[in-house]
């Protein structure tokens, strides 16, 4: 028990050091611009379709549920408003984060894990190249930049999906729906939804890089690190979402 606890503390410390060094790498030379652009392409452009698809269907399902429930109370004209607030402040960032963790987090962990097992990271160290600067920093930065962008696009896809259900299935007015959405797009709501993905991007990439770089034990070890990267990222996103929601509601003056 005490050995497990000590190992957990050691791992937490190593994760913390890797994250801080990775972040500080943004401000120190050399800058690996090409790697950063490659990572943005992989994590951002590569995730675009799946984020749009998932968000579209989440928006449609949410709209269906709300329209059905609000119809009973004679309030279905509020579908747009409730869907808008839910997607922009809460569901959009979390959905994009979860998709990002599954696709990009797993990819980062397995790629870095394979580089460890294939001695590619050792080669970098022998050549005098800092693996954290070369491998971790571009991944951290690209995730922090691309996840908010993906969230905005995912929000738009979700609102379109919700629009389709509200107007063409629930027979609501298109004008009322978009006016409701327009009213929901306040600074507080948008800021609340955009601030989260910056943190989620950091969480996913730092956890995935750490898990990848601590891979050992061949194919089984690679499976273990990839699984842990995705599972820990998802759990941490959910926890961070709650904490951030509490902080943002307080900071932006919402009363609970």
């Amino acid at each position: 028990m005490s050995i497990d606890f000590k190992r957990a503390v050691d791992e937490l410390q190593e994760y913390y050091i890797l994250s801080v060094k990775g972040l500080l790498g943004i401000f120190r030379r050399p800058f690996y611009g090409k790697d950063f652009i490659e990572q943005m392409d992989y994590s951002g452009v590569g995730s675009l379709l799946i984020v749009c698809l998932v968000s579209l269907f989440i928006g449609m399902a949410l709209s269906l549920q709300l329209a059905a429930e609000l119809s009973v109370m004679g309030l279905k004209m509020y579908t747009g408003k409730v869907v808008g607030i839910s997607i922009i402040r809460e569901i959009g960032p979390v959905a994009a984060g979860l998709v990002f963790a599954g696709r990009v987090g797993a990819g980062m962990a397995s790629e870095l894990g394979l580089m460890i097992l294939g001695h590619q990271v050792d080669s970098l160290r022998v050549f005098g190249v800092d693996p954290i600067k070369k491998l971790v920093t571009p991944r951290l930065l690209s995730s922090i930049v691309m996840l908010p962008a993906l969230t905005i696009i995912g929000d738009a896809a979700a609102l379109l999906g919700a629009y389709y259900i509200a107007v063409f299935v629930s027979n609501q007015s298109s004008y009322v729906y978009w006016t409701s959405i327009e009213h929901v797009l306040t600074f507080q709501n948008v800021f609340s939804g955009i601030a989260k993905p910056f943190v989620f991007g950091f969480i996913i990439s730092s956890i995935s890089c750490y898990m990848g770089l601590s891979t050992y034990g061949g194919a089984v070890g690679l499976r273990r690190s990839t699984t842990r990267a995705v599972v820990y990222s998802i759990v941490m996103i959910i926890i961070a979402d709650f904490v951030l929601t509490r902080i943002l509601l307080y900071a932006l003056g919402f009363s609970v």
Binding site: E38, G118, Q120, S123, R125, V126, G128, D130
Partner: peptide, 24 residues
């Protein structure tokens, strides 16, 4: 420390098992 080791490591040339070429 890792930074100090760079000069030491440059005295050697290593070829790892399987070559360890960068895949990308």
């Amino acid at each position: 420390a890792e930074e100090e080791l760079r000069e030491i490591r440059r005295k050697f040339s290593i070829v790892f098992q399987e070559g360890a070429l960068f895949d990308s």
